[in-house]
């Protein structure tokens, strides 16, 4: 999907709702019942995009925090944005990009490597609702099924 580099986005409400819990963004598309998880750098990027920061501002913030080159970070961010748009979790925003939000990134000395952001997707609503979060999950907890359930 081609997007202007200075385009900013918003969460596709009311069809999409999201919450950030323990550095993980969990997102659900109420129309389809699909559940999404964004962890690590993906969670950080989601938070920035949801605050309507444009991609260049997101990349600039991340480049100050991570050790990788801005080009590498930009590639990862654009790939995630494409996935989020394809899944209709984000849609283009009408207003001007929001430059008032400061990114919530800690910088305590060494800059960590930039892990490629990943959008994890779970589409089987019935399976998700049936998955027992105590007995049927792996060490990461629901919605990650135990190996013998996959």
């Amino acid at each position: 999907m081609l997007v202007s580099p200075h385009q900013n986005f918003r969460v596709n409400q009311p069809a999409v709702i999201a919450e950030v819990i323990d550095n993980e963004a969990i997102v659900v598309n109420l129309d389809s019942g699909a559940y999404y998880s964004l962890r690590g750098s993906a969670c950080t990027i989601w938070e920035m995009l949801a605050q309507q920061m444009a991609v260049p501002a997101v990349v600039q913030s991340l480049a100050q925090h991570y050790a990788d080159s801005p080009e590498t970070i930009q590639s990862g961010v654009e790939s995630l944005v494409a996935d989020l748009l394809n899944e209709q979790l984000l849609v283009p925003a009408d207003g001007a990009p929001d430059s008032t939000h400061e990114p919530a990134l800690s910088t305590n000395g060494e800059r960590p490597p930039f892990a490629t952001p990943v959008l994890e997707k779970y589409t089987d609503m019935a399976e998700l609702l049936l998955l027992d979060p105590i007995h049927d999950v792996d060490a990461a907890g629901w919605p990650h099924p135990a190996p013998d359930r996959q």
Binding site: E19, I21, L128, L129, P133, I134, A140, G141, W142
Partner: peptide
């Protein structure tokens, strides 16, 4: 904690639907 967090996530998901 991971399983309790998973239970919270599941309740959040189920309630949203």
């Amino acid at each position: 904690l991971p399983r309790l967090a998973g239970i919270y996530r599941k309740v959040w998901y189920a309630n949203q639907l």
